[in-house]
Nucleic acid binder design. Sequence first.
DNA 1: TCCTCGATGGCAGAGTAATC
DNA 2: GATTACTCTGCCATCGAGGA
Length: 319
Amino acid sequence: MAIVDAHKLDLNLLLVFEALYLERNVTRAGQRVGLSQPSMSNALVRLRAQCGDALFVRTPSGMEPTPYATALSGNVLRALDLMRATFEQSAAFDPATARRTFTLLMSDFSQFLVLPPLMARLKQVAPRVRLDVSAMDRDQYRAALESGEADLAVGHLQELQSGFYQTGLFVDQHVCVMGRDFRMAGDAITMDEYLAANHLVVTNNKTDLQIDRDLARQGHRRRVALSVPRYLVLPPLLAQTDFIVTVTEAIAQAIDDAIGVRWCPLPFPTPLTRIRQFWHARYHHDPGNSWLRQQIAELQIGATLRKIGSPCPRSEPVS
DNA sequence: TCCTCGATGGCAGAGTAATC
DNA sequence: GATTACTCTGCCATCGAGGA
């Protein structure tokens, strides 16, 4: 048995192998791949020479595979199926039948807002499509999108503002959410009350860092009592403390819905949070990626959020 | 003996590398 | 870029083995 040289292997011969394995007849196998019987026979000769094995031998019941051909058959047939699926996938994307897995990069804030309506939509229109949401650090997003490790990134990702295609999804503004034990004089928090409060900070939210810088420029400094990496822990903490936390309105509304809290505008202006989806140029014309982007763009996310643009926002390459 | 079906020889066309 | 020689592949016609 010869060792098959992959560089010299004619991949068309794998189709010949597959047809012979399935038909057990040279003439019918030829019809299956569009060759005449002599051409099929000739192809079998070449295949035998490359494999160093007869592969199929004539018997009263047809062309039976040798033990070596039987051993090869599983991997060869799987490889051909994989190739067909690969090229069918790149040629078109049918959400109703697609089995593709998309990898998304999202903060837990974006997951909180986007995943519930997105999964409800996928369940209806693309039941076999799977999403993997990566937990990698934000400073790794750029490399993951460039390498193809991830399909899309969603969020307020200023580090991806250049070099990627993007569409805006919605904008949100920051508000102040008060813990149940927090006391203030009026309905809206004053600057003095804000600075005197015990602050709860989500370190994953880079806007918090911006707020600290803005306050410092005005000669102020807030008192951070606790910093946490994720939003998940906010509701139980706010339910039992007098902490206040600065988050977007959508998060405030969600916390209010969960445990019932007060929230109000900040006593100073902050920039709007613009949630966008980002993708690399390599996926710009990919039918599957394009379809997923459209699904996300069409989502109705949160009652308090302002949608950006039309249901199908125009993508913008940014250099 | 006949029929079926894989194998083989000869030929043509297409593709590729080498040469000018 | 054009020409030439070589290689590869497929087709037609035919052969030959094996089964009924």
